[in-house]
Write a protein that binds this DNA or RNA. Structure first.
Length: 200
DNA sequence: CGGAAGATTTCT
DNA sequence: GAAATCTTCCGA
C-alpha cells in the first residue's frame, strides 16, 4: 500500500508517479483492481480548470484542503462519479483525476457492473472506472492509507513510457486549458481515446 | 431562489 | 451528433 508521504507532493509529481500503480477496492463481491494508465493533475489556486480554483473551502472541494492521501469524488453531468486522489500538504487544494485503468482482478464482476463485455471499454474513462470498481459518493473523503480502497506499487515504468498531453474537456479554463498536465502510458491499449487536438 | 453548466458516456 | 440527469455555484 502506498504510504502517506507519496501523496504529500505537488499534483503533477503525484499524477506522473501514479502511472503503473495499482488501485484496489475490496468489495463484498470480491477484490477489484487495475493498473492506473492515465491521470490528470489539478493545481487548485493556480489552475483555472480546477474545482478548487474559486470554490469555497466549505463546498464540495473541502477534502482537498486536508493533506494528501484522501479520495475526492464528485458527480458530473448528474450521472457519473469521478475518482481523484488529494495531493500536497494541508491547505494546498490539489488533486489528481484518475482517467483510465487497466483491469486486473475481478474482471468478471466489473463486466457485470458495467454491463459491458469488451475489456478495453471497461475502465477507459473516469466515469467508467468508478462504475466498474464500485466507487461512488460514499467513498468521498476515504483515507487511502488504510481501508478497503487503496493504491499500491505494481510495475516500475521507464520515464520514456510516460507521455503528456493537454487535459480533456476544460475549454472554459482560459490559458490553463493548454497546460500539459495529462499523463498516460505510451502504447497502452487501455488509455481512453481522445481527439487529436489534445495531443502535442 | 432560479437557472445554467459541467474533470462524461452512450446510443443513433 | 444529441440526450440523459442532478449537484453545485452564481447572480438577482
Amino acid at each position: 500500500m502506498l504510504k502517506k508521504n507519496f501523496y504529500l507532493r505537488n499534483a503533477n509529481e503525484v499524477a506522473s508517479d501514479l502511472l503503473g500503480k495499482k488501485i484496489v477496492h475490496i468489495t463484498e463481491a470480491g477484490s477489484l483492481s487495475g493498473i492506473i494508465v492515465e491521470t490528470e493533475a489539478y493545481l487548485g489556486l493556480k489552475d483555472a480548470a480546477a474545482h478548487s480554483y474559486k470554490a469555497s473551502p466549505d463546498g464540495r472541494t473541502n477534502i482537498q484542503y486536508k493533506e494528501g492521501g484522501y479520495a475526492y469524488i464528485y458527480l458530473i453531468y448528474g450521472m457519473h462519479y469521478c475518482f481523484n486522489v488529494v495531493a500536497n500538504i494541508a491547505d494546498i487544494p490539489e488533486a489528481v483525476l484518475i482517467r483510465a485503468v487497466e483491469p486486473l482482478d475481478g474482471i468478471e464482476i466489473m463486466k457485470e457492473k458495467r454491463n459491458m463485455d469488451n475489456i478495453h471499454n471497461l475502465c477507459s474513462g473516469p466515469g467508467k472506472l468508478c462504475k466498474a470498481l464500485g466507487i461512488d459518493k460514499s467513498h468521498y473523503g476515504t483515507d487511502l492509507c488504510g481501508g478497503k480502497l487503496y493504491l499500491d506499487n505494481h510495475v516500475m515504468l521507464d520515464s520514456d513510457d510516460i507521455l503528456t498531453s493537454k487535459r480533456i474537456n476544460i475549454e472554459y479554463a482560459g490559458e490553463a486549458k493548454d497546460y500539459l498536465w495529462r499523463y498516460y502510458i505510451r502504447n497502452n491499449k487501455f488509455v481512453s481515446k481522445v481527439p487529436l487536438k489534445y495531443l502535442v
